[in-house]
Write a protein that binds this DNA or RNA. Sequence first.
DNA 1: TTGTAGGCGTTATCAC
DNA 2: GTGATAACGCCTACAA
Lengths: 330, 330
Amino acid sequence: MTAPARRPTIKDVARGAGVSFQTVSRAINGKAEIDPETRRRVLEVARRIGYRPSRHARALVAPAVDTIGVIVPDMVNPFYPALIQGLIDAAAAHDWRVVVTTSDGRPEAEARLVTAMSGQVDALIGYFNQNGPLTSGDHDDIALVRLDLEGPVLAGGGVRIEVEAGVSAAVDHLIQRGSRRPVMIDCSSTCDRVLRRESFLASTARHGLDVGEDRVVMAEQTVAGGEAAAAVLLDRHPDVDAFFAFNDLVAVGALRALQVRGLQIPDDCAVVGFDGIPLGELVTPSLTSVRLDTHRLGVLAVDQAARLLAGHGDVEPAALSCELIVRDSS
Amino acid sequence: MTAPARRPTIKDVARGAGVSFQTVSRAINGKAEIDPETRRRVLEVARRIGYRPSRHARALVAPAVDTIGVIVPDMVNPFYPALIQGLIDAAAAHDWRVVVTTSDGRPEAEARLVTAMSGQVDALIGYFNQNGPLTSGDHDDIALVRLDLEGPVLAGGGVRIEVEAGVSAAVDHLIQRGSRRPVMIDCSSTCDRVLRRESFLASTARHGLDVGEDRVVMAEQTVAGGEAAAAVLLDRHPDVDAFFAFNDLVAVGALRALQVRGLQIPDDCAVVGFDGIPLGELVTPSLTSVRLDTHRLGVLAVDQAARLLAGHGDVEPAALSCELIVRDSS
DNA sequence: TTGTAGGCGTTATCAC
DNA sequence: GTGATAACGCCTACAA
């Protein structure tokens, strides 16, 4: 914290204008009961000496929710900026500000940020890499909305993304277009999100396919990570006919790995990602993906925060469905 | 603003613990002068009734800069999330929070956000589409750091990106690899940034090339916009041998337009973008670009804000150089 | 129309 | 070790 140059207060203005600080308040806030000439003079003085009302003092007198904090792993995966835009838009509807921080996905940073931000904002919305509780669950914790919910909500609120249906649709699609030897690039080694893999395995099993453990490899959540993992899978199973990826970023990596080997997409091998980020439309071939509506996710999350703030205790988590977008990679 | 459920105050804790609110303050803030047993009891009560100190009341007693606001056009162009990450990192070094808003590039929204945010944050960092002043320039305006500076700083602080050198390097590179009939996809119809075009025209002229007005077309700042503009240019000048684009997003559009026509990149026609976003490495062929160091940009911007906050009056704008990154598209 | 008093939640200062 | 008291900057009554 840097100490700012001492700011002029309402009293400085009052002194300068030769009125009581009360009159200044009236002028500043555009109240009716004031002589237009007096107001003009007061505003003139305020402008001249550089007076701006203290938001803290105002908030003290008229308490109101005004700021929510957002914690995401990073800004590299375009999914997060898209989510943040959704949150900003939804928050604007409440006239709430949005404070953004990134955790780099490190569990200790996530916990630290929750603690640090708790005192700075009225509610917290987070997409965390870890599943465990980030608050004590006690009554004194900040209103926390988790967007990483895969099971029952721990405490506070949350949004549960209906991964199963989306992944199921993706697998159905792959099978239908002829895939019999699908593999998955997973990232649950870097985070606690296991539902995508579980859904993938359940869906393929439902189709009578036995996707063994050696057909799922872990990757960093980057394009390079996806490319490396895809290369491993291609070495291990040269006959692979479909990639299902943890997210679009690693899916793009898979595209590259396939292209490096001169394989045709989707004829030789199809690729399906997850998230539905705009990048998927820009790569060649364009990427089939299970899309999340980030705008709606923002609305749901802010709504959860509002409920948490309004009522007492936890709230029922919201649900967000996702949708398979078929493009050229499958 | 939604009225929150009334939060417990320090006095509620005091009452519950049977001590003065002063003692509670000591316990909460970990002061030394307090009986360990008393502290334990106080903290226990605080936890039980859900007490959290008011940041506003604290800020009132101990004034400190703690929040800066950021205004960018959108989160769609990956340049802005990258910039925001840089700002968050730089702000963290000061223990400052970052409030993020988007203006959608609309001038009236930009002006409105500057006004609205002024009361909510200690300083403002913005990348605006318009060149005009966004504050009155009076002493009472908020500390404003502009990252869109193309001329002398208007008021407050700012960072001036040394576009000329970057574009000059790009043009030199294009000429050197044989281009004689370059064109430009510009976006200064959607914003007041004209330096990229001016630099392009100056640089080509320096090489004895006469790039007429019909060799520069305007585009929306999107991939689709770039693709459309490139198509227009290709129709108009089938012999074009190089595209210089306002930014990487429209440059990617140009790549697509060329590929649609079956032209070889860079042999038939080269493409150079601006910004150096990671997306440039993901497209095929990878994109040559004039890269900005967003992390450093964040550091410079926050530093400008700190100076503005510390001193009185305006500060000398900082300068950020940019660097040509040659990839496969040229 | 204008000014005075009280209080918002917190911390620092000074007694006890 | 603990507790009053003042002060932070502002706003909403209420009084003049």
